[in-house]
């Protein structure tokens, strides 16, 4: 049963995503696994972090004991100050997002469809949800990467053929990194790019809702 196979932990997902951030790019990290990504970007690869709270070039999360109440991200978490930092109005923060100045955003998701539709703001069973800045980022960022667990708490696939949860954006996701695989939504469907160590493409398909397009060679998850 592939559902019982060992999966990668959240830090490994974050490490894999960090490899996708080009040096010198401007990056906005969402809440959850995406926030962890900043811990794994190596010092050589200078990345500029952007936050909707009105901060650019902020550092990764602050260590305990050095928190500054005036330096927070969109989730209210404390950030480290770094040289070259800038503060601005939230109006400007979203001008940067919609205006195409943010290169990459990394977001969590409830569901992603085969063609890259994103649903990450509302669980239908709850009837309501928080959208935050996710819809702006889905519409405005040059590249949307989703970092998430492959299946939800009940084992349901989060990579699906069509989303049935309310959408955040259509066709906006360009890469999905999970604890099982790396996948690329395309107009033709979901392409499996990498599988976690010990997983065959067929086993990945077994825990995935979307029909996977499996190329001749599927690389091992690269960390």
């Amino acid at each position: 049963m592939s559902a019982d196979k060992e999966r990668l932990d959240r830090a490994i997902i974050a490490i894999r995503v960090a490899k996708e951030l080009p040096a010198g790019s401007c990056v906005n990290l969402g809440i959850g696994i995406p926030t962890l990504v900043s811990m794994f970007v190596d010092d050589e690869s200078v990345v500029f972090y952007h936050s909707e709270s009105g901060v650019l070039n902020c550092g990764p999360l602050a260590e305990e004991g050095s928190e500054d109440i005036d330096l927070i991200n969109a989730g209210g978490q404390f950030l480290q100050p770094v040289p070259g930092m800038a503060y601005f109005s939230s109006v400007d923060a979203f001008a940067m997002i919609r205006g195409g100045h943010v290169d990459v955003t990394v977001l969590g998701a409830h569901q992603v469809s085969a063609t890259g539709d994103l649903a990450n703001w509302m669980l239908p069973e709850r009837g309501v949800g928080n959208i935050g800045g996710a819809m702006d980022l889905a519409a405005g960022a040059d590249k949307v990467i989703v970092a998430m667990e492959h299946n939800d708490r009940n084992g349901n696939p989060k990579v699906v053929q069509e989303c049935d949860f309310p959408l955040t954006g259509r066709g906006c996701v360009s890469l999905i990194v999970t604890d099982v695989a790396v996948m690329e939504p395309t107009p033709d469907g979901m392409v499996l790019r990498e599988a976690a160590p010990g997983w065959t493409p067929e086993e990945v398909q077994g825990v995935t809702g979307a029909r996977l397009i499996i190329p001749d060679s599927v690389a091992e998850y690269e960390v």
Binding site: V55, D70, L71, Y87, S89
Partner: peptide, 12 residues
Amino acid sequence: VYVGAQRGWNSA
């Protein structure tokens, strides 16, 4: 004048 991220939403 604001300090840090206080500027973001308050000035908006």
